[in-house]
């Protein structure tokens, strides 16, 4: 569980780390803590999964990855754990989740987001997923985003 100091640390870093030689000391100064404590807390939060990773967070669009396809698959429930793990391990899949079906409109229970430089590249990568899953998927589809209607960052109050 997060304590009040963790939440202040989140608020202080959600726009990024200070780009100075000693960023953790700088954060420590802002928060009134020791550098060693900042480092220990970040390590714990990383180990616990509250931080996914620390580093460069690319803007996919600016890097030319302008096509984003949500591939969705109807996979037998008893196979979804094993197949999801294999699909997530592909290096072009950015998110991979099992989600509930909404029958009859929505038969799909496995979601794998694929980013590419063009819709052709996304289709070809979805083809690789299809080959990997094989007959275990009854059907699949790819939903391209045609417009971003809203996009805001994570907002955490201190």
């Amino acid at each position: 569980m997060l304590d009040a100091i963790d939440r202040r640390l989140i608020a202080a870093t959600q726009q990024g780390l200070p780009l100075v030689r000693e960023p953790y000391r700088e954060l420590a100064g802002r928060l009134g803590l020791d550098e060693a404590e900042i480092i220990a807390r970040l390590k714990r939060l990383l180990d616990d999964g509250a931080i996914r990773r620390i580093g460069a967070i690319p803007n996919h669009y600016a890097l030319g990855f302008t096509a984003n396809g949500m591939s969705v698959w109807d996979v037998a429930d008893e196979l979804v754990a094993e197949i999801g793990a294999r699909v997530g391990a592909l290096d072009f899949v950015t998110h991979c989740y099992e989600r509930p079906r909404h029958l009859p409109l929505w038969p799909y229970n496995l979601f794998a987001m694929v980013h590419g430089r063009s819709s052709d590249e996304v289709h070809s990568k979805v083809g690789e997923i299809a080959a990997l899953i094989g007959p275990a998927a009854c059907s699949h589809d790819v939903l391209f985003s045609t417009r971003i209607l809203k996009k805001t960052g994570l907002r955490i109050a201190a």
């Binding site: 970040l42 620390i54 460069a56």
Partner: peptide
């Protein structure tokens, strides 16, 4: 090019 540099929460 980068959205930011730091922890991805």
């Amino acid at each position: 090019t980068l959205s930011r540099f730091g922890p991805l929460w």
